[in-house]
Design a protein around this nucleic acid. Structure first.
Lengths: 337, 337
DNA sequence: TACCATGGTCGAAGCGCTTCGATCTTGTTC
DNA sequence: GAACAAGATCGAAGCGCTTCGACCATGGTA
């Protein structure tokens, strides 16, 4: 292993000079700078991460606390994770993976041992047990999602409330008078997962504002569950002509169910989704949707974290706007026969 | 921040004694041990990770190199990742997330800066450019998957060759004489992704051994692609009565396609999958499958890595057996009318 | 009784880097 | 031409831990 002392010797300068060349924190004559850089290249020098972290009090590692629950949609999680890692690398940081089931203890551990400099926390609940920990930690953190009380926190999220509203508005604009929100599994609501709640609230609020009937029901991910949920829904509210879905995993089964029930999309039943554009465009028919910009959210979260690390001020709450794209899964409701 | 010196002072001992109490590397009198532990508890001491790593030459961090390609099945990747993280924690290690698109450079970086002690590499290709790097690195690594030449490496994988064979055998045992392997997207083959190749080889080999017709075709993930692939297949080989699928994402579309073509599963068409048991059981009908034991593979990989770190000898190649479970998607072929 | 293991503890020397203050050149300014 | 500012470089002091060798009591042995 080649150390900074080796480089210094090779270039005929002091170790501190090498350090300053590498960090740029003091001015160095072009002459010396070139000589040092050449030595670094020739020797293949790489600064030791631990030594650097110990001396500078910065590990250049971010923690990513990621949920590994089966009721969350994995590909979307993965998109968040990818965006976080990619952006972190742009700022010369690495990412330590922390599973949510380590909970408070995991967060405290990596923070108190100075393993990481800051953390991104995903899958936040309205009243999340980890939030008091984050508040006390005196280590910068950014939440993806937003809890009920955001005081003292930094949150980045899609504006799910507006997303819920947009879906209703689009259907109402098309002339639908009775629509339903096919929600997440009930366990997700019971945990008071933030995004699910906000969507629900936006949906209800917009339905009331538009004076139309908006029915809400949780829904599990399996084909059978979707089938029975939809059947129940149509039995209770035969006039439903539009559905809103806020999580990707049930969309596949839902399309199958509607086909099986003989309801064409969109002629007999309009369908709005809140999902990634990729996903919406991959379905048959292509889905009218409010985009879930996972990349943008992950990127934003890391940029804010870096900014906080550098002492910058960032807004407590950043809501990305809900953007609706009308595709092939929505149209005016069938005229009553 | 409370340091080991603070603890030492509080307990009235030398810092080295505290260290030995914590590591157990030298015997300490019960009396002192208790006093030190009490001080640790009272002061809430946590050893600084960087300092520890610098002094001991061990960061207690593993790198996980994970593919983030869109043609790989994400939930399965995630299961591997979860298993790796969970197992790593059992051995008191953390996991650094490295995306495969950082490639050789990423691996070299984390290795040469001593950011990590060892690494798990996923999504290995038959002739992977990262393998020479791993060989030279003098840092322990374990591959999930296996390349063509495993010399000097440690690999853990499902025995995909046997998995391909088992699928054929099961269908042949039921009386099928003409079957097809609906493969991965062609990009996966072009990359020579190992698992896809091995499955293919096992499939062909068993078909020949059993004296039945075994057709192979790549297949993209979209509904349209599956539809046209299956139509083409049935046009070229009308006698096909059994399908084998080796990647989860096309199973949903495939079931839809078969329904749309009026082929019942399993009465008109038997279907074998290589996928996780969870997934197989969640489909309608439940799928006969060879299990893809993601948890077991991830666990095995980390255990071997830890063993290597401790100087242990581990087998170069660990193939987990292919276990077939017959469920509702296979039955004898329809009798020719 | 003198001697030597043995267990228990300490002090000091690093691990490889960053950073602070000091020193030594230069070039400017009056 | 003396005084001074600014630029370039160095040396040393840490960062918080592990680990090595040394030391000091013991108690058992001859």
């Amino acid at each position: 292993m080649v150390t900074i002392a080796d480089v210094a010797r090779h270039a005929g300068v002091a170790a501190s000079t090498v350090s300053y060349v590498l960090s740029g924190k003091r001015s160095i004559s072009p002459d010396t700078r070139d000589r040092v850089k050449e030595s670094v290249r020739v020797l293949g020098y790489r600064p030791n991460a631990s030594a650097r972290a110990l001396a500078s009090q910065r590990s250049n590692v971010l923690a990513l606390v990621i949920p590994l629950r089966t009721d969350m949609h994995v590909p979307v999680m993965m998109q968040f994770a990818t965006a976080v890692v990619t952006t972190a690398r742009r700022f010369d940081h690495d990412v330590l993976l922390l599973t949510a089931d380590e909970g408070r203890e995991g967060i405290e551990r990596v923070a108190q041992t100075s393993l990481v400099d800051a953390m991104v926390v995903m899958d936040v609940e309205l009243h999340d047990e980890r939030i008091p920990v984050l508040r006390e930690l005196s280590m910068p953190s950014v939440l993806i999602g937003h809890p009920a009380d955001t005081a003292g926190l930094t949150c980045v999220d899609l504006d799910f409330f507006a997303a819920g509203e947009r879906c209703v508005d689009h259907l109402a604009d098309l002339g639908h008078r009775c629509i339903a929100l096919l929600g997440t599994p009930s366990t997700v609501y019971e945990r008071q997962t933030a995004f699910a709640q906000w969507t629900l609230d936006g949906f209800s609020s917009a339905a009331e504002r538009r004076g139309i009937v908006g029915v809400e029901t949780p829904c599990e991910h399996t084909f059978d569950a979707v089938l029975s949920t939809v059947e129940q829904l149509l039995r209770d509210h035969p006039g439903i002509t539009g559905l809103v879905v806020q999580n990707e995993p049930i969309i596949g089964p839902l399309l199958d169910v509607l086909r099986q029930l003989g309801r064409r999309v969109p002629e007999d039943m309009s369908l709005m989704a809140i999902c990634t554009d990729d996903f919406a465009e991959g379905q048959v028919p292509q889905l009218s949707s409010v985009a879930l910009p996972a990349d943008a959210i992950g990127l934003q979260a890391v940029e804010m974290l870096i900014s906080k690390l550098e002492g910058g001020q960032v807004p407590a709450m950043t809501l990305l706007p809900a953007q609706l794209t009308a595709r092939a899964s929505t149209c005016p409701p069938p005229t009553r026969g």
